[in-house]
Write a protein that binds this DNA or RNA. Structure first.
Length: 804
RNA sequence: GGGAGAUUAGCGCAGUUGGUAGAGUACCUGCCUUACAAGCAGAGGGUCAUAGGUUCGAGUCCUAUAUCUCCCACCA
């Protein structure tokens, strides 16, 4: 028997434990069923947990559950990403230590210990949301399997020349002391001062005005640029200019169209490196390289008296000196947007370092990425455009070196004599070159080697999740049969980063796509135009509070509102809708089960028209729901079966209530007919509703259906429509019957009568008189009609007098 | 500055190929009906962001503008 009231938190936790204990979601490697494999994006454990995290996972889980109920063997792992800089910063903050002051192994040990609880916290949340992952398939992006996989990937790419090491200027964070990828940068508006300087022409013929916000870069000034279209300055091209404060140094003036005529004074100094444009000019004009800033953001020796100062202090000192010597003729306070490192908000610099890159940006490769993008099935289709336009604009190779401490090491040593890289043996992986000697001899004869001290960027690992999942390290043949995996889901912000990089790796290693289908979910927004953020999560959006009050099923219900891939606004009302349905499912089932507990399902010899009608009506809803799920429209699918469920309660149950209650009046046969229809429809409805709301479905299944259905969980049962004899007209006739009831209800409502008010006589005019005659008892009972008459003709309902 | 998406009832949303605007919720009116008042029935409520255009006909197609979201670029 079901409880009188459904205790959400208690029951949900109970069934979650049951699913784990019974291994309901376990992947069976020996199964004969077709496999459906999901490449779950491992979430970053260092992130703040909020309701938005459940959103994307829930939708993916619904698609996963749908596929499981089609009879597939699900491969649905749950990894966590705890590799790289975000995690390193988290550990530093939590443990109040600094990674660069400790031996790497020691830091890693502290990190691993701390991460245990973070990993668990994340997994707990995902499990608490009823996501049907198989935890035993899980991995950490810093564990042995992940390290081996990313190191093997690196060695293979390096040996084939796809990964290469080069001295390249790249964005550098002086606070985190590492190079950072372009997409780790964000814009921030900062106050600054535009300093207008007079540079002296070397031939003594006068001065030229240049505006700069970074005067401390003067020691690294290697050229001056003007726009070739700018008539004011065309006579200056090729002339030489003395660098203020460093007048022994002379630089040339070039003309280049990248100079904005109306920006500043229209004359720019190029320093190595103030920004991306400087980098481009440096390359294009083969300029000198003068590094004015070191790893930690201090001025280098080339800066003379300013050496050793931090950039901000150097800027002050330089400005003082410029003023004292009369170079500055104007200063304007401005606010401009500056590229900062997204993790620490420190403005980034450009530094030149030897780093590993992966080739991604040649025209042929870009063509390839576009081709692969076209072969991938996108949900929704429109998201492909983002990918395509990114690929089109791709102009830099992928930098994977990070000068950090907590991450996957590069398994490589360099010959001390000639610099040639020597790689670890694949069978020895994972390898940390800092703690392992290279026992070999270089072709040049040297036996001395320098270990690589950089670690790989997180993305180098999170882009090989298909290879981790399919155990590519140990079994290349097996993996190549399993890749492409069936499906991957992701937020739309990482299409261009995570997804593209995973596609690139799979292409290099397996020569194909990493997955067949890509599901891109939208975002849950806190309010119109407001993203969910930490400080919102402790108010109305507090996750614990929501889980306690409404539970996972309701949050999942809310996650399935609307069209797939669209943003959704968080609101309490949405949760209340789900709560309403949850309650209704419980009560409706409880009521129906009351008449089923002493019943063993068996097809009755006679099925009454109303019962036949509701089963056909269900099959209709079933087909629509299935087809929505096939189109990856979890919201529409949910809405379809929800609509039918309300129809079942408000119309069908009301119609057959009396037959179930009073077999002594209506007959045992009539009761059995209703029981048969109720059993089938309720069970199959619960299967479909359970895709969205797995806990309540399990509660009811275990309470009754488990006795007759083979599977030990409703989530292992296979979907199918109710087997019925064909009856083409039954839906149309039944709908007319529902219309009769609606008319009488309307009549009573408009006349402010109770619904149970007795009516003397009603006449139904219809072309389906025979059908109505067979339903006479049900109609009379539900509307309390004393005398029901029928006549043939155009449909109408004639309502007579109210009984006294 | 460029690209993509969005804008529909008080609210959060749906609206396939152009053909009289849809459900839910809230509000209002009734009904304590032997599962559920977290219920049932009924009613009202919209110049489809704005301005143009194509068409016999536009929420739907085109152009521009505004606002929001995401991505990218610029930022001397």
């Amino acid at each position: 028997m079901l409880d009188n009231k459904y205790n959400i938190e208690e029951k949900e936790k109970k069934w979650e434990e049951f699913w784990q204990a019974e291994g309901i979601y376990k992947f069976d490697p020996n199964s004969k069923k077709p496999t459906f494999s999901i490449d779950t994006p491992p979430p970053t454990v260092s992130g703040e947990l909020h309701i938005g995290h459940i959103y994307g996972f829930s939708q993916a889980d619904m698609y996963a559950r749908f596929n499981r109920m089609l009879g597939k063997n699900l491969f649905f792992p749950l990894g966590v990403d705890n590799n790289g800089l975000p995690t390193e910063l988290l550990v530093e903050k939590q443990k109040k230590i600094q990674a660069h002051t400790l031996p790497r192994e020691e830091f890693a040990k502290i990190a691993q210990e701390l991460l245990v609880s973070y990993n668990q916290k994340y997994k707990n949340l995902i499990m608490r949301a009823g996501i049907s992952c198989d935890l035993s398939l899980g991995y950490d992006t810093i564990d042995n399997r992940s390290q081996k996989t990313s190191q093997k990937s690196f060695i293979e790419l390096a040996k084939s020349g796809i990964a290469y090491r080069e001295n390249k200027p790249s964005p550098w964070c002086t606070k985190c002391r590492t190079s950072v990828a372009q997409f780790e940068l964000e814009d921030k508006d900062l106050d600054s001062v535009f300093n207008y300087l007079n540079f002296k022409l070397a031939d003594g013929s006068g001065t030229i005005p240049i505006a700069t916000t970074r005067p401390e870069f003067l020691p690294a000034c290697v050229a001056i640029f003007v726009n070739p279209e700018d008539k004011r300055y065309s006579h200056l091209v090729d002339k030489l200019v003395k660098v203020p404060l460093f007048e022994d140094r002379v630089v040339k003036i070039y003309a280049d169209s990248k100079v904005g005529i109306d920006k500043g004074t229209g004359i720019v100094m190029c320093c190595t490196f103030g920004d991306q444009t400087d980098v481009e000019w440096w390359k294009e004009y083969h300029l000198e390289l003068k590094q004015a800033i070191d790893d930690g953001g201090r001025m280098t020796e080339i800066c003379g008296k300013y050496a050793g100062l931090k950039t901000t202090d150097a800027r002050k000192a330089v400005i003082e000196d410029l003023k004292a010597q009369g170079y500055i003729y104007k200063q304007d306070a401005i606010t401009h947007s500056v590229k900062v490192h997204e993790r620490c908000e420190q403005p980034i610099e450009f530094l030149t370092k030897k780093q590993w890159f992966i080739r991604t940006s040649t025209p042929e490769l870009k063509q390839k990425w576009a081709e692969l993008g076209n072969k991938l099935v996108w949900h929704p289709e429109s998201m492909k455009t983002r990918y395509m336009s990114w690929v089109e604009n791709l102009n830099q190779d992928w930098s994977i070196s990070r000068q950090r401490y907590f991450g996957v090491p590069f398994p490589v040593w360099y010959c001390a004599a000639c610099g040639k890289p020597h790689f670890a043996d694949i069978k020895d992986l994972p390898v940390n070159p800092l703690s392992t000697e290279y026992n070999g001899k270089c072709e040049c004869g040297s036996t001395k080697f320098v270990p690589e001290s950089d670690v790989m960027d997180t993305w180098a690992t999170s882009s090989v999740t298909p290879q981790i999942n399919t155990n590519w390290f140990d079994d290349e043949k097996g993996a190549s049969k399993k890749i492409p995996m069936d499906m991957r889901f992701a937020g739309r912000d990482i299409i261009t980063t995570w997804c593209l990089r995973t596609i690139i790796k799979a292409y290099y290693h397996q020569g194909c796509l990493p997955w067949k289908e890509l599901l891109i979910n939208g975002w849950m927004m806190a309010d119109k135009g407001i993203k969910i953020s930490k400080h919102l999560s402790n108010s109305k959006m507090d996750l614990n509070q929501i889980m306690q009050t409404y539970g996972a099923d309701v949050v999942r219900y809310f996650s399935a509102s609307g069209a797939y891939g669209r943003d959704v606004m968080f609101n309490d009302e949405g949760l209340k809708d789900g709560y309403k349905l949850l309650n209704k499912i419980f009560n409706g089932s409880k009521f129906v089960l009351n008449f089923l507990y002493d019943y063993t399902p068996k097809k009755p010899s006679k099925i009454l028209p109303v019962d036949e009608y509701v089963m056909h009506k269900f099959n209709d809803a079933y087909n629509k729901t299935i087809s929505f799920y096939q189109d990856v429209e979890m919201g529409y699918a949910k809405a379809e079966i929800e609509k039918f469920f309300y129809f079942f309660c408000d119309n069908y149950i009301e119609l057959v209530k009396n037959r179930l209650y009073k077999p002594e009046i209506y007959g045992e046969e009539a009761k059995q007919s209703a029981q048969w229809a109720s059993y089938n429809v309720l069970f199959k409805m619960l299967q479909l509703l359970g895709i969205t709301m797995p806990h309540i479905a399990e509660e009811i299944y275990q309470n009754y259906f488990r006795t007759f259905e083979k599977e030990k969980s409703i989530h292992l049962t296979v979907l199918s429509p109710i087997k019925l004899d064909e009856n083409k007209t039954i839906i149309e006739k039944g709908d007319e019957l529902i219309e009769v009831v609606a008319r009488i209800r309307q009549f009573k409502s408009e006349n402010k009568l109770s619904l149970k008010t007795e009516i003397e006589d009603v006449e139904i005019v219809s072309h389906n008189v025979d059908f109505f005659k067979l339903c006479s008892d049900d109609i009379k009972a539900v509307m309390n009609i004393k005398d029901l008459k029928f006549s043939a003709g155009e449909f109408d309902v004639k309502i007579g007098k109210i009984a006294e």
